[in-house]
Amino acid sequence: MNFGYRRARNTAGVLAAGIAAVFTFEIIDLSIQVQQYYSGWFMIFLMAILVVFYVKKRLIVVGMGSGGNWAQWHYYIGLFLFIIYLKHVEFSFPDGLVESTITVFYLIVMISGVCGVFINRVFARRLSYLEEDIIYERIPVHLKKLRHDVEGLIIDSVENSGSTTLSDYYLQHLAGYFEKPQFFFTHLLGSNYGFLRVKDGLDRQMRYLNKKEAEYALNLNNMLQKKNLLDTHLALQRVLKYWGTLHFPMALILVLVTFVHVVLVYAFRGAA
């Protein structure tokens, strides 16, 4: 039973449960009751379960099941919650400032959550496919050291080869590349296009280099790859670390807005 099958099976189950829930609320609505009260409280219950996941991650000492299982439940309950939400708003964007604000925050949380699932899955796998592991906080150190090494290499090439072809090319086309992280979004998309373009430029310069410069160019090529590795790590790890900065605060704000919404609903309700 591979991952794809499990994912399809579980997603189908959530969709089926969601459809059943939608019909349930529709039946409640047909029985001359306001289904939004029921779907709303059900949503709050589901949101509480989702929040417990965050608490569980903080309370590691409390044995409440594996984090992986909790994450799975978090994903599928989130998906289920979205279906309930659609029924709650009757499949339309609500009017009203408070209601539309809730909707906006909910969509941010939901979309960021879906993206988070994708990020955790894809980016983590990509990181595991890279040549080596690098600690995120060390990346600036490595970049600085690599730039220093590259500059030393270029100076040596000028001194030993007697030609400035390579150094001229470095100064024109590669100095900026080594100065700071590059091609952030390209790496997020899983593409090496930026790096390959830079590398291709260096390869084309080989015909213009003398024999000694060519040796330095080969070393420079290795350093390009290291730079690309660092850029890839930076992009992937940064998103992995910081995507939660959007998801969690928005979820917190969503909880606050939901509380306001509940108070307003019951303060201005017609009847239970």
Binding site: G270, A271, A272
Partner: peptide, 11 residues
């Protein structure tokens, strides 16, 4: 008011 149980309040 949100915590009261008066059902037909605004009705």
């Amino acid at each position: 008011k949100a915590l009261t149980l008066n059902s037909n309040n605004d009705d």
